[in-house]
Nucleic acid binder design. Structure first.
Length: 194
DNA sequence: GTACTGATACTCT
DNA sequence: GAGTATCAGTACT
């Protein structure tokens, strides 16, 4: 992809919750064939390693979670509930586990392309959930391990966008519920859950 | 509008 | 063999 202002690898090599928070308002870019989809990131969750019971990395590296211990700025995609793919971005320096789950997006460009991938009655339902957005952006296991600073899946810096951020408990987990590791943009229509 | 349920296959124990 | 970082559909209020 030939786009300026992509966030560099060093952006992701930091504390996971800080990255999760700062990704809000940034643009997720997705190239499919000749088409480009642009979406604003409006909801994220932070997952750490050893001290985070809800994280796939909490019990050390496994074949699935090993990528969370690797270099930052990589996509970590996995299949969940036998039905959905979920998209994460690996954080922290190589050797330390961490990832940010992308939970919801606000469609900005390429909306007709998304409609082809995921026909919905209302635009609001297009990308307001982690399983929904991977369907709309055609993200699957093929994207697992891809860097997000120069491929067909990338994240663009947006300097002027400083949204008001709300933190909340994470969704859909059984352990680590007490931690406020979910972040979303206040009053945004596309956030999956208030 | 909210509440409940089934689908479905992969990962780790 | 159990559990799962979800969603869509149905049945209600």
């Amino acid at each position: 992809m030939n786009v300026k202002d992509l966030l560099p690898e060093s952006f992701y090599a930091r504390d996971t919750a800080a990255v999760a928070r700062e990704l809000l308002g940034k643009y997720l870019l997705r190239a499919i064939g000749g088409d480009l989809i642009t979406c604003r990131i409006v909801e994220t969750e932070a997952y750490y390693g050893q001290n985070d019971a809800a994280s796939h990395a909490s019990r050390g590296p496994t074949p699935r979670s090993a990528i969370m211990f690797g270099p930052p700025g990589r996509a970590y995609v996995y299949f969940n509930y036998g039905v959905h793919y979920l998209l994460n971005i690996v954080t922290e320096p190589a050797g330390t586990a961490g990832a940010v789950l992308i939970r919801a997006l606000e469609p900005v460009g390429g909306i007709e392309v998304m409609r082809r991938n995921r026909p919905v009655s209302e635009l609001k339902k297009m990308t307001n959930g982690p399983g929904k957005l991977t369907q709309a952006l055609k993200i699957s296991l093929r994207e697992n391990g891809h860097a997000v600073f120069g491929g067909p899946l990338a994240i663009q810096n947006v300097e002027h966008d400083k949204p008001e951020i709300v933190s909340a408990r994470r969704v859909g987990i059984s352990a680590g519920k007490e931690l406020f590791y979910r972040f979303y943009i206040k009053d945004n229509l596309f956030v999956s859950k208030k």
